[in-house]
Design a protein around this nucleic acid. Structure first.
Length: 873
RNA sequence: GUGCGUGUAGCUCAGUGGGAGAGCACCACCUUGACACGGUGGGGGUCGUAGGUUCAAUCCCUACCACGCACACCA
């Protein structure tokens, strides 16, 4: 296989634009994303939540899809049978509204095309304009198994949908019934409970008097929706409300209409709210509907599909044809004129709004298809409770549990054309035939009812019905494929919490019902992305950031790293900061330049990836190898635990602060020259592999530029901690050197000496060889009498002295003295406390004594120095 | 209303029952054999408030305050 092209001279600044598209093309062409089922290896399968065919990449994909790509790449390197299964969702409502809008722009009405014509256009649109998000995902470096990409409207997936529908119908779990549903008058379709938002709105509470026919009494009710009075069939009061007990069973007259309705007693009524009496409109309010059922009230609807007042079922006076809001205005006016409007007060309450269209939902009694949820929910709950299904973070499990415990039947029919048409046919006499295909339906109808013409139910299924089958329909179910055998159930599902109900729970229910097992073992709920002020990103607020712009500016690697570093295991949101992408771009540039340095070494890099004998390694070598070992452990553990933020941080720290800041610098010192090329090469090769899942492009580019085995880092093995020698003692010695170097730098800075200067340094006699070595690379030893600076170093070196004029030292000494006195005082007080010495752990007490001694010694030196300079302590 | 989460440096966030941290921003200095998308040093916080447990609390417990979110049939 040909390696991707690359120039021999590395430019001074890393340019992701010159690297990323080329490498992605190389990977995809080489089939590195593709995998076949292999029963011999442990599977690692992630079903990608299929983005809408109308969708565009947004920052939310950064937090939910990047981890999927990271884990897939990680497990591929671990040697697992890893596959990330992509696809697209037909997104019925979204697609249909996009299309209707486009048609309208061309002056075409949806209905004029006819159903077939419209569906044809929808397919055309999906194939051409739709799915641009897949190209965007490529730009982001996401590497799912594109060859296996599926679309929820594909033949196979559609067959699965029909099979599931027919099966559930036969089992009695799908039924057709007249129920109160959520009607979206703008989208002209029903919407499920889970697709409704509750929004606080300013409104009014109107008090209306309903008099008795003979005028002997009246009852006053309060309502926010006076227009629905046209459909009132009762007044309800609480059975224990003494104000009204005498009126229960009596009748009052509906103002403006004149219809007589009863007063009923129902415990659902809140005595303390409003007047304690409520009008009951069973066909247009969920609570009223329940009351209506309990009291067998008539349930006339008074609105049509456009939410206009309609007299189709009952007399609505002169209001027929008015929009619901116009009707409200007119009715309030008329009530006022009639003298029955008692009060109008400002009132803030929450209204139900369609998530999709933003339109206020109209509860409406309607004949629809439903799934009985309780029997499906029970096993799904059980699976969670006995640990077969796990949520990360755990708290989301309770959300899942709570919803399943209170589950209501799922309205699955939608009044749309684009989608899976219900596999339901009707005979002229209204008999229902459910079948997987039209031919089967005819056979059934012939057998059951003779040869009657059939008409198909025009409705389509809720989009989530087909996505509920996703983890197995994409594997070929109901065919018993090898994929299904090896890859179901999947290992992990990653998504945002907002679709735990809509999608996750439904996949679990349907997966368990039809395949007997949970569709995935772990659900990782990724944080949602907000702007830096914690506001939701939206077009209307103008605070939305396009990830494509970020890739353009910083590169895909930087975008991925930038967003992952903002993820915290327990976090439920990310306040996105673009500066993190900028930092990550700088990080990549750092990697690039460290690579350039390695390639410029005069001795060159060795071909084989072997380390020198342990005896030949220097302290610096052993330190960086030990750190590499620890980083491999940390990154692996964090990936295993879904802690992407800490995984990214661990690599970051290692690469920048340990490798670049210290080890690379150390290789410039002659004592490290002998081994540096081999160690640099070995460590960097490993570091790039650790980085690969997060920043696939630069890690590949660098890996290929340095000694390596294989054609791509993507299929290289994950770094093995056992192959990296650990030497804690040497590592500690190097860390002492680091501390010494830092202290000398600090001294230089305080003394305003140039960093490059090598001032004479007095060192104490008991200094270790390692520390002495480190110091002598920065400063020559001194002789003669100079003013002495005494400091305490982390790691136990004390008494380094730097030659310097006295005047520059005073301020620093004074500050040190103040700080040290404070510490000595605090420590003495702690140790003087008998409870502390008696009760605290012995090692804690011992450590405190050591600290005190250290502070006292240091303070003594500083005071001595001050005294020598004529200061009184 | 019920439940969940969050309050730590100017900003975004780590963290720990025993001497308060990172990055960015800010200040000063530095073109030292890769990197100014860089290096070095520095200033800056009563760890939301009030109690409690403990020898010891930023961390554990309780209450409160503020913010965010999810559920919920007060019309």
């Amino acid at each position: 296989m040909a390696s991707p092209q690359k120039s021999t001279e590395l430019p001074k600044t890393y340019d992701p634009k010159a690297v990323e598209p080329r490498l992605y093309e190389f990977w995809e062409r080489s089939g590195f994303f593709h995998e076949d089922p292999d029963p011999a290896r442990p599977p690692f399968i992630i079903p990608m939540p299929p983005p809408n065919v109308t969708g565009r990449a947004h920052l939310g994909h950064g937090s939910t899809y990047t981890p999927q790509d990271v884990l897939t790449r990680y497990h591929r390197m671990l040697g697992d049978n890893a596959d990330w299964l992509p696809g697209l969702d037909h997104a019925a409502i979204a697609t249909e509204s996009v299309l209707v809008r486009e048609l309208a722009a061309q002056g075409i009405a949806r209905d004029s095309l006819g159903r077939d014509g419209f569906v044809e256009r929808a397919w055309e649109w999906s194939r051409t304009t739709g799915g641009t998000i897949e190209a965007q995902f490529r730009t982001l470096g996401f590497g799912p198994d594109w060859q296996r990409s599926r679309f929820t409207m594909d033949d196979g997936l559609s067959a699965a949908v029909r099979k599931v529908f027919a099966a559930l119908y036969r089992e009695g779990l799908i039924y057709r019934g007249k129920r109160l549903i959520n009607w979206d008058p703008k989208g002209k379709t029903t919407v499920s409970d889970a697709e409704i938002d509750h929004v606080e709105r300013d409104a009014h509470l109107w008090h209306i008097r309903y008099p008795s026919k003979d005028g002997s009494f009246a009852i006053e009710i309060a309502t926010t929706r006076p227009e629905t009075m046209l459909g009132d069939t009762a007044i309800a009061v609480h059975p224990d409300d003494e104000r009204y007990t005498a009126l229960i069973g009596k009748r009052v007259v509906l103002p403006l209409i004149g219809r007589e309705i009863p007063i009923v007693a129902d415990a659902a009524v809140e005595r303390d709210f409003g007047t304690g009496a409520v009008k009951v409109t069973p066909a247009h309010d969920p609570t009223d509907y329940e009351i209506g059922l309990r009291h067998t009230l008539p349930m006339p609807t008074i609105m049509d599909a456009d939410a206009r007042i309609s007299d189709a079922e009952i007399d609505v006076g002169p209001y027929a044809g008015l929009d619901r809001y116009e009707a409200r205005k007119r009715i309030v006016d008329d009530l006022r004129a009639a003298g029955v409007l008692i009060k109008e007060e400002a009132y803030r309450h929450s209204v139900s709004v369609s998530e999709r269209s933003g339109e206020v939902i109209e509860p409406l009694l309607s004949l629809q298809w439903f799934v009985t949820m309780k029997p499906l929910a029970e096993p799904a709950l059980q699976a969670y409770r006995d640990g077969r299904l796990r949520f990360v973070p755990e708290r989301y499990g309770r959300t899942y549990e709570q919803w399943l415990e209170n589950i209501r039947d799922w309205n699955i029919s939608r009044q749309l054309w684009w989608g899976h048409q219900l596999p339901v046919w009707y005979t002229p006499t209204g008999d229902v035939v459910v079948a997987e295909t039209e031919e089967e339906a005819r056979e059934i109808a012939r057998a059951r009812y003779g040869s009657a013409p059939l008409t198909r139910d025009p409705d389509t299924l809720d989009t989530w019905f087909s996505s509920g089958l996703w983890p197995f329909s994409i594997l070929g179910w109901p065919e018993q494929t090898l994929e299904l055998q090896c890859w179901y159930p999947a290992q992990v599902l990653i998504t945002g919490w907002e679709i735990i109900f809509l999608w996750v729970a439904r996949m679990v229910m349907l997966g368990m019902h039809f395949l007997g097992t949970v569709p995935f073992g772990t659900v990782f709920i990724a944080p949602l992305v907000f702007d830096a002020q914690g506001r939701k990103m939206s077009k209307s607020l103008g605070n939305a950031i396009d990830p494509m712009d970020l890739v353009d500016r910083y590169g895909a690697d930087a975008f991925r790293m930038g967003i992952l570093r903002q993820m915290r295991l327990e976090g439920q949101e990310i306040r996105f900061q673009e500066s993190r992408c900028e930092e990550a771009r700088n990080f990549n540039n750092k990697i690039w330049n460290a690579t350039r340095y390695m390639l410029s070494l005069p001795e060159g890099l060795p071909r084989a990836m072997t380390l020198p004998k342990s005896a030949d390694l220097t302290v610096a070598d052993k330190w960086i190898l030990t750190r590499l070992h620890d980083t491999i452990v940390a990154v692996s553990d964090h990936f295993d635990g879904f802690d992407f933020g800490n995984a990214a941080d661990a690599i970051w720290r290692f690469v920048w602060y340990e490798f670049c800041d210290w080890y690379v610098e150390a290789t410039k010192v002659p004592e490290n020259h002998g081994t540096r090329a081999a160690v640099l090469s070995f460590v960097w090769n490993n570091a790039m592999r650790l980085l690969q899942p997060i920043a696939p492009f630069i890690s590949e580019e660098v890996w290929l530029a340095l000694p390596h085995d294989g054609v791509t880092i993507m299929t290289a093995t994950w770094p093995d901690r056992l192959e990296v020698r650990v030497d804690r003692e040497a590592a500690a010695a190097f860390e002492t050197q680091m501390a010494a170097s830092e202290e000398i730098r600090r001294q230089k800075a305080a003394l305003e000496l140039p960093l490059s200067s090598r001032p004479a340094t007095r060192v104490p006699g008991d200094l270790s060889q390692a520390a002495l070595g480190a110091i002598s690379t920065y400063s020559p030893p001194i002789s003669g009498s100079t003013i002495q600076i005494d400091v305490n170093l982390r790691g136990g070196i004390s008494g380094i002295a730097v030659e310097a004029p006295a005047t520059l030292l005073l301020e620093r000494y004074r500050k040190d003295a103040v700080r040290l006195r404070r510490e000595v005082e605090r420590s003495e007080k702690t140790l003087a406390n008998r409870d502390f010495t008696a009760k605290a752990a012995p090692n804690v007490v011992a450590k405190e004594r050591e600290k005190l001694e250290g502070y006292r010694n240091e303070l003594a030196r500083v005071e001595k120095a001050l005294a020598a300079m004529g200061e009184t302590a």
